[in-house]
Structures are given as C-alpha cells and as structure tokens.
Design a protein around this nucleic acid. Sequence first.
DNA 1: ACCTGAACACCGTTCAAGT
DNA 2: ACCTGAACACCGTTCAAGT
Lengths: 246, 246
Amino acid sequence: MPAAIPFEEVPAPPWQSPRKGLRKAPAARQPLSAEAVLSAALRLVDRDGLDALSMRRVAQELGTGAASLYAYFSNKDELLEQLLDRVIGDIPLPSAAAADWAAEVKRSCYASRAVFLAHRDLVKVARANIPVGPNSLRYVEALLAVLRGAGIPDRIAAWGMDQMSLVIVADAIEASIHASLGRQSEADAAPYLAQVSEYYANLPAEQFPNLNAMAPAMIEGSGDERFEFAIGLMVDGLARYIKAAV
Amino acid sequence: MPAAIPFEEVPAPPWQSPRKGLRKAPAARQPLSAEAVLSAALRLVDRDGLDALSMRRVAQELGTGAASLYAYFSNKDELLEQLLDRVIGDIPLPSAAAADWAAEVKRSCYASRAVFLAHRDLVKVARANIPVGPNSLRYVEALLAVLRGAGIPDRIAAWGMDQMSLVIVADAIEASIHASLGRQSEADAAPYLAQVSEYYANLPAEQFPNLNAMAPAMIEGSGDERFEFAIGLMVDGLARYIKAAV
DNA sequence: ACCTGAACACCGTTCAAGT
DNA sequence: ACCTGAACACCGTTCAAGT
C-alpha cells in the first residue's frame, strides 16, 4: 500500500482560496495539527458515518472547541476534501507495465471502490470531477499512464477517466447508502430486494407491462456484478478508440 | 410535455414508512396541501438553490410554521423525494416506436439531463437507484419498453438503465456545481479551465509527465460533448448485447 | 502568535396547547 | 381534527478576549 503524500508536496491550485491559518505543523508540544484533525475526523466517519462529522464533534474528539479547527482548515468543505484525498492515498496505483491494460484498469476500479467502501459514506463528499489533492493527482497520473500506454488518444483518455471516476463514486455512494440501511451483505439485502421485485410485479398491468415482466430481472445480480458490468461497458468502450495498431 | 402523475395513482411501496399525516387534500378553504408545499419548495430551489431549501423557509413561503409541513410529509427527505419525482414528470417519455432505438435512448438521456439542469442543483437529492415515485416509474417503464423492444436481454436492460440514470444524475450534479460557481456558459468557464490546464502543465515533471502532456486534453470539450461521449459509450455498449437477429 | 468561550444566525423535528 | 408557537438539540462560522 502506497504512503499518502502530504498536501505540502504539491503546489496549491491557484483557483482555491488560501487557508487563512497555519501552513506548517505547529511546535511539537502542540497536540493539534492538520494531521491530527484529519485522523480524528476519519475516526469519527468510520465509527458513525459522514452525517456524524461536525466541526464540533471533531473538536470534541480532540479535546478542544470547534473554533480551533479553523486554524488548519478554512472551512468544513476543505477539511472534507483533504480527508477524501487522504483516503484516496490508500488506493494502490495501477501499473502501466501490466500485460493486459484493460484488466489492469478494471482491477484498479474495483480497488478504488473497495477503498471508498471501507470508510462508510465518506465517498459522498466526492463531487466536482477535477482532482486537486496530491493523492488524487498521483492516482490520476498513474491511470493516465496506463490509458496512454494502451494507445488511447489523449482526449478520449481524459474523458474516459472522468467517466470511470464518476461511475466508481456514484456506485460507491449507492452501495454506502444500502450499507447504512443495514443491507451490507447480499443476505441482508435479499428480503428488501424481494419486496422491491414484488412491488414491480404488482404494479397495474395496463400501465406497467415491462416493469411487471422484468420484476425478477430488476433485482438480479449483486452490487459487485452490477459494478463489474458498468466498468466493463466503459473500459471495453474505450478500447474501441485505440489507434490502429502498428 | 406529459402531465405529472400524482402520488396517489400508484400504490405506496411497502418498505417505506407511511406518512403520519393527511393522505388526501384538505378542505378547499385550506391554503395548505402537499401540492402547495411542493410548489413552494420548487420555487425556492429554482430561485436560491437546494441549500436554501429548509423546512422553515418553505413554511415561511406559505405563511405558516415549519411544523405544519409535517402533516403532509413525514420528514424533509420525503418532501425532497416527491419534489424530484415531480420534476422527473417533466421529462418527455421515449417512444418504443422510434425507428432507431439507440438514437431514441440517447435523445432521452439528453432530455433528462436538460430537465434536471433547469432546476439548479435539485438533482443532488437523487441518490439510491431504485425508482419509486409515480413519474419515475412511468419513465422507467417507457425506457424499458425501448430497450426490450430493441432485443436487449432483461438483465442487461435492467443493469444498463441503472447505469444510464447514474451517469445522467452524476453528470447533472457536476454541471449544477459548475453552474453554481458562476460557470454556466462555456465562455464563463473558459478562464477557470485555462487555470486548471496551466496547473496541470506546471506540476513537477518527474512526478507528473502524463498530466503535463495532457494538460490541454484534460479540459477539452464542453460539458455537452463529454456527456454525449459518456452516453455513447453506454448505449453502444448495450447494443453489443442484442440477441442474434432473426 | 496562538487559542477558545461565547455568541450569531441558522437547522430538523417534536409536542403540548390551542382552535 | 387540524394547526402551530415554542422548545429541544443540534449546526458552521466569527470574533472579542484571553494567554
């Protein structure tokens, strides 16, 4: 597992407002630091979910007041953004040296999803698609290396990567919602899905003939299978753009 | 434009908690009703965005207190869910009679995105992928008719529809975020995108050779072009699953 | 220079008390 | 039976006052 890169090693994007507080870690005798705040925040998310993550509770976890956090993060959104980037640092980087680039990309997508799902619904904070955190940048760089190495044109590689991250995030969000409703395992989800299927089967026949007929198909497949299907559509689609081979 | 179906015309899904308050519209002399609450809420979202939508403000818009809304919606989430379904009622239904099913599906995806984008960031409330509102169900039914009519196997049609709605929603969310940052038009976004591209171009060369090289490609294409690319990947991918023609 | 208690301006939801 | 004022238990963020 690669070590996370601290935010200081990469230049700050110029379109973001600069933090108003400290930029460096404070003196050693201080218990507070950006690192400590992020760790406390992640502990909270892992234990109680994203909704439980308030500035006040993070501060409480650190034995201080909410106002103290504003020395390290200009607001809650910035804290969340850095927290997500820290988690993204746990995703193993795909290798451009892999024999089968498509398999490597798919593997990497599965790994990304797994890392997100290890932290409850934290993935919900991933919104705008432009990566800026150091770990996100490093991951993007590695994935682009694979796609370009495979001969995919730059523009298609850029668009395809956007789409893949969008699909990974959207799927992980959905899975995290199901998990938060107590349907982590396939077995837990089964009674709920059976209810959904029956609901579709019993909709008025004149209005909903296709939903009636597809009631069983609508709940077929585990979350993993559906995700693999989606990623397969994307990656196989990208493969068709590869320039004429030498 | 099809008229929206009221929630009463479709049976309530059994896995949802029943509303605790009224089920029917109150006496005519009452200014309050579920319909009136939804209209006020939509007005608020259209004017000030989803973050401005609080129970208190909706109530204020109607000249009453927040507590009064709980007679019609058991909580804020339910209000939002019904509000989204109401907007989904504005999406024209795709036709299974269309000569080119793939073109019809793509057109329908573009139309969905356009309807979502007409209501600021309301689309953010679309989370779990299982449609339950009457208008959502009607749309799903129509889209399934097109996919099944094209000869796509049931399981693939179900998974593909899930994916398409996920891509539409995720893309619309991203576009709405950009719009809320004052980058509605391509012209408004240009200076921001130029900054992003320059940022990528100036990342340390040893660590980020691919991002350096792809700096121009990373911001190529309008939001519309990127969306059409993504939908194209999906729909063309689904086409490959069509059973052997007769 | 760094930290923080208290305050400001909000939330969603409940419930006793009204009509 | 329906509606609502007031309260409860929270929010993110600011800022004057401390050390």
